[in-house]
């Protein structure tokens, strides 16, 4: 084979090899989705969604308290994390000078990269030790610590996509800095900010490690925010490692439920954002 032929052959082979890499990288998602659907779908039924867990050894039972518990934890996390995060993001994008935003951005970046189990230790030290027992408050705090930097970063990014001339127009009409921010800039970025919050919630919804020794687990309904609370991820973890087939069946079902919710939020948010970006490009 001549030199050119060889080079063309290498070109073709390497294209095929890298294409194979790309396909291999996509395959795990489809595999995970497929196997969860096969193993878990048949177990997602009314009693699974509405009943409390049965004692070990008895068949049946459900995850109602874990589903509600996850919601409760996310609510707590959002209560702490979203207002602080959005306000912080507004400061970084609209009010910040040079120094504070630089440091805060760096801290947010750092906090996002902290392994989630370490966040769990932190929440344990801060809340559980002080209260003297596990509680949904501690779990909510742990998730809020994970949520906060994501919301700050997302909010700042979406506010920055708002064109400068919108701000200039508002300022030229005599509106103050805050008035401009709250009635022009934030509404213009609202859709992005909200999807950012949803994505952040979806991200922390699947976290298990920070809940293991903060929210702990509970076989019954948790009343108020003082008691330990069950959550979907912790329940999945516990059931998957148990030696009982019926628990395994429910672990599959709960994993499918969790993954389904997380993926639906992700897909919808990404579609919305992609559309938004496209329209911005035309404008």
């Amino acid at each position: 084979m001549n030199r050119l032929g060889w080079r063309k052959a290498v070109n073709a082979i390497m294209s095929a090899v890298t294409a194979l890499c790309a396909v291999t990288a996509v395959a795990p998602l489809l595999f995970v989705l497929g196997i969860l659907a096969v193993k878990g779908a048949s177990s997602i039924n009314w009693s699974f969604l509405t009943q409390l867990p049965k004692p070990t050894g008895e068949l049946g039972g459900g995850m109602a308290n874990a589903i509600v518990g996850s919601g409760q934890l996310l609510l707590l996390a959002a209560l702490f994390g979203v207002p602080l995060g959005v306000a912080g993001g507004i400061y970084l994008s609209e009010f910040g000078g040079w120094g504070v935003p630089f440091v805060v951005r760096y801290a947010a970046d750092l906090l996002v990269s902290v392994p989630s189990i370490v966040i769990g230790i932190f929440a344990y030290a801060v809340v559980v030790v002080r209260m003297g027992h596990f509680s949904s408050l501690a779990g909510g705090f742990a998730l809020a610590v994970m949520l906060l930097p994501i919301v700050v970063t997302n909010t700042e990014q979406f506010l920055r996509t708002v064109p400068v001339w919108l701000r200039e127009g508002s300022l030229a009409l005599g509106a103050g800095h805050w008035k401009t921010t709250i009635s022009v800039v934030v509404p213009a970025a609202m859709q992005g900010i909200l999807t950012g919050i949803l994505l952040a919630l979806a991200r922390v919804a699947g976290e298990t490690a920070p809940l293991l020794f903060t929210a702990f687990n509970n076989d019954y309904w948790a009343r108020g925010f003082q008691q330990p609370v069950s959550s979907l991820p912790v329940r999945i973890y516990e059931y998957a490692l148990s030696p009982y087939d019926d628990y395994h069946r429910q672990a599959w079902a709960a994993a499918l439920l969790l993954l389904g919710l997380v993926l639906i939020v992700n897909v919808l948010s990404r579609l919305v954002l992609a559309k938004k970006m496209a329209s911005r490009r035309i404008a």
Partner: peptide, 11 residues
């Protein structure tokens, strides 16, 4: 794939 919770990978 990055959005899949780690406990699901665990299962």
């Amino acid at each position: 794939l990055a959005a899949v919770p780690s406990v699901v990978f665990g299962v």
